[in-house]
Amino acid sequence: MISLLIPSRRSSVAFYDPVHAGSRAAGTDTARRAELDELEAQLAKQLAEVRTERDKLAVAERVLERMTGQIAEERASTGSAPGQVGRCPRAPSATSPICCGGI
């Protein structure tokens, strides 16, 4: 609400100016709308980035599942256990895990 004080001989008289009060409020509304439009654009961009990242993650998860399955099949067919490594040909005996380090 915009009011003007107009001095008179007796006292001040308050005068309400509805024309300018509306334009001032409209200016504030326009500025707020611009802020919200900018925020909406930023959020839309972030949402697109999140969806892209989620899609990439889903692809990586499928690849990991496929590779895990292939490794499990290979282990089942060869009979090797996880973490089992071949024996060094230069080890002193088949039961000794000591290796020469490839020398």
Rank of each mutant, 00 (worst) to 15 (best):
A44D: 06
L64V: 05
E38R: 07
E61S: 05
T52H: 07
R32Y: 12
A44S: 03
I2L: 08
Y16V: 06
L47T: 13
C99T: 13
E40L: 14
A48P: 05
A72H: 11
L36V: 13
S3V: 14
R62D: 04
A72W: 06
A21H: 06
K45E: 09
M67D: 13
S93A: 14
R62P: 07
S93V: 14
A94M: 15
P97C: 09
L39D: 07
L5Y: 04
R10M: 05
A26H: 12
A48H: 01
G79N: 13
S3N: 09
T68C: 09
S8A: 07
I71L: 14
G69H: 14
G102F: 02
S93G: 12
M67T: 12
C99Q: 13
A26Y: 03
V59R: 08
S80V: 11
V85W: 01
E73C: 01
P89T: 05
I6T: 01
S8P: 03
L5C: 02
L64C: 05
R90Q: 15
A34S: 04
V19L: 01
E61I: 03
G27I: 01
A25T: 07
P89I: 15
S23C: 04
E65V: 13
R66T: 01
P82Y: 12
A72N: 12
T52D: 13
A21D: 06
D55T: 15
L43W: 09
R32L: 05
G102N: 03
R66H: 09
H20A: 03
P89L: 14
E65R: 08
T30G: 03
L36E: 13
S77N: 05
P92F: 10
K56H: 12
D37G: 00
P82H: 11
S77T: 00
E40F: 13
R75D: 05
P18G: 00
G83A: 07
H20Y: 02
